[in-house]
């Protein structure tokens, strides 16, 4: 049994009470200063919500007003993807001169496999795909997570090679 001097014992007791009071003071400060408490709400304000433009939600393919995209079907995104998320399916298209030309039929994107690593967007040489700022991906059926990125009937933009 260690013998503690009376003086030290008393100073220890008062020091302990002081330390508890200091912590309590800080707690009471926030108890009385409601404005300093930061509570972040779930982003239900969809119309006014602004996420950073680099936020990686899901991969999308922007189309212009003529339903044209910039994808040449070079498969760079398919090769860059670590998880096999993207699959490019081709079709043969006839050019006005009557030549056969390879074009994309579907760009299949498996959201359930995607880890949002941004490597496909980096790899794309013609800026055909980009990351969208969506964040609620839960659906009732798994098959809904397999998406086709190009719109039906869309074709490649003029001048994109």
């Amino acid at each position: 049994m260690k013998i503690v001097p009376v003086k030290k014992y008393i100073s220890d007791v008062f020091g302990a009470i002081k330390s508890l009071a200091t912590g309590m003071k800080r707690t009471m400060y926030y108890f009385t200063h409601h404005k300093e408490i930061i509570t972040q709400q779930y982003p239900d304000n969809r119309n006014t919500l602004e996420l950073p433009e680099r936020f990686k939600g899901e991969v999308v393919m922007p189309h212009d007003e003529n339903n044209e995209h910039r994808c040449t079907g070079c498969q760079a995104c398919e090769l860059a993807c670590p998880n096999g998320t993207i699959k490019v399916i081709f079709k043969n298209e006839l050019t006005p001169e009557g030549k056969k030309k390879k074009a994309i039929d579907k760009l299949v994107y498996h959201l359930e496999l995607c880890t949002m690593c941004n490597l496909c967007v980096e790899a794309c040489p013609s800026d055909a795909i980009k990351m969208a700022q969506t964040f609620e991906h839960s659906v009732f059926d798994r098959s809904k997570l397999t998406k086709v990125l190009n719109n039906p009937g869309s074709k490649i933009m003029e001048g994109v090679e």
Binding site: R54, F55, C117, L119
Partner: peptide
């Protein structure tokens, strides 16, 4: 992090040769 790297936890920001953005 979200603003610069695009993600809050798994950023994947460093690439061989530098940084992504």
């Amino acid at each position: 992090m979200e603003e610069t790297c695009g993600a809050r936890l798994t950023m994947n920001y460093m690439v061989p040769g530098g940084v992504m953005h």
